[in-house]
Design a protein around this nucleic acid. Structure first.
Lengths: 285, 285
DNA sequence: TACTGTGAATCCATTCACAGCT
DNA sequence: AGCTGTGAATGGATTCACAGTA
């Protein structure tokens, strides 16, 4: 029972580095666009620009797949599309199930980008009996009771979890028990899976938080910089509600006291600390 | 005009590595859960398990933030929640706009995980006049014409793009021109933004493709291994439609010929190559 | 001439292992 | 005794820069 890894540890499958694998879909997308415009060949420079990477990286990536280019010319678009598709396993069809047909599951069911890349939505599954039977994206929503049957009858090996966090682990276990070995998890939870099962996660709010981090220090150079620096090892008192404003003191007091002070301030406000709305959060001293 | 970077190059903002920043939201989520259960302290081991990472990594990550733990004891949960929130900039409110209220935009608008972490959806924007005015997630959908006004009036610095791929770049430019400096992009396109603007992307189908890659070589050991190996530098003829089946020949022919052969085969079938359904894809020889 | 393919150099991230503190 | 914090070691990923080739 490994605890929620994102993908297999580090074991570059058949010698292709994970970082490279993660970029192949990007190249594929750019190449498909070129293919539609009937562009016969591209240079590493052009393709890299279209995919949003630099050309050295792209060439190194491709070198792991083989020598698919022509020196002095570039890469044959159709040929590369085929090679990358094959490498990614997209020349075969992958039946997937989507579990949890709420807002997000609904959006996923209707997302065109799956079908066009070899992923076939075999079934939509939801636990709410009142939702079952409804036709969504051309498919009837089926009840969780049928999960195992559906997986087995359709030979599904990839499952998408779009349930609330609380249901995710159980759904995950049932999927795995029924034969699923790859899971795409949209629920904000860490999933535990046995070895041999791959989990990838997409957390919408995490991406925003990372942006907020960077955003903070763009506008932050103004009022925050001094405080942030002075606070280095303890924390800037209370920001946004500048109570004591002892920030100018260039860290002479022992960290211990500062830490305790901040802790107290935190305990006092305990503003937003709940993950999904209102929260008690009574801390025992 | 830098071409679509995912985040700022490598310039670890204020010394915190990007990889660490990307994990802070994970820790925060785990800590918030503990906080709700009124757990006062955690060890690095416990917290790491809850966040799905290993404890050495977690300790190293926290060491970039400062010395927030107590040796022999662990970390104070509330205190850490506060410190990480502050580091991520979540102690302030971030107004965001969502552009493109299709299936996905709708799901994003209703997603509870934003509001609970300091992100306030300031407005929903769509280009379709027939959609405007509709109340979605408690907000009226507004027309793209109002984009600039909305951004400025609400001091929005973070924008979420959930439009079709074709509209994304234009929307992006308008957002940036109006003052947005961080963009979360769900459209399957590379966005070009000026320096100083951060873009993060979420591509639902890319994650599935990465899973497919790994999935392929789980079941792949049976029929595919031989072909894949023999084909090493050229490609395995045509898989799934085994026309010539010359795979057993242990690569004696020059790669040139093999490459041409595969190219021809590809040209012949040109099965699925379109990105979003049907595709002409007429390739000039 | 114009490009790919790739060793070598560099940079970043992870892991190890233990000193240091409570 | 039990845990954090962190230098040092390792391993991956990116970039450089150029030899090789159509």
């Amino acid at each position: 029972m490994a605890t929620g890894r994102t993908h297999r540890p580090a074991s570059r499958s058949r010698g292709i580095p994970e970082a490279t694998v993660a970029r192949l879909p990007l190249y594929l997308r750019a190449l498909t666009a070129l293919s539609e415009r009937s562009v016969p060949t591209v240079s590493s420079e052009e393709l890299a620009a279209a995919a949003g990477v630099n050309s050295a990286k792209l060439r190194k990536d491709f070198s792991y797949l083989g020598s698919y280019g022509t020196r002095g010319v570039g890469y044959d678009v159709e040929y590369l599309v085929y090679q990358i598709s094959r490498e990614l396993g997209l020349t075969q069809d992958w039946p997937v199930v989507i579990v949890g047909i709420g807002n997000l599951g609904h959006a996923l069911a209707n997302y065109g980008g799956f079908a066009s890349r070899g992923f076939r939505v075999a079934a939509l599954i939801d636990a709410d009996p009142s939702a079952t039977g409804k036709i969504t994206a051309g498919l009837p929503v089926r009840h969780t009771d049928e999960l195992e049957t559906i997986i087995r009858e359709n030979q599904v090996s990839i499952g998408v979890i779009a349930t609330p966090a609380g249901a995710a682990q159980e759904v995950c276990e049932r999927l795995v028990a029924a034969g699923v070995t790859s899971i795409l998890n949209f629920a904000p939870t860490v999933l535990s899976v046995p070895d041999g099962v791959d989990v990838r996660k997409v957390d919408l709010s995490i991406e925003l938080q990372i942006l907020a981090f960077h955003e903070q220090r763009k506008s932050g150079e103004e009022a925050l910089a001094a405080a942030a620096e002075a606070a280095d090892a303890d924390g800037p008192g209370t920001r946004g509600k500048p109570e004591k404003s002892q920030k100018a003191t260039p860290l002479a007091a022992p960290a211990k006291a500062a830490k305790a002070a901040v802790k107290a301030a935190v305990a006092r406000k305990t503003g937003r600390s709940g993950p999904d709305g209102e929260v008690p959060a009574v801390m025992p001293a």
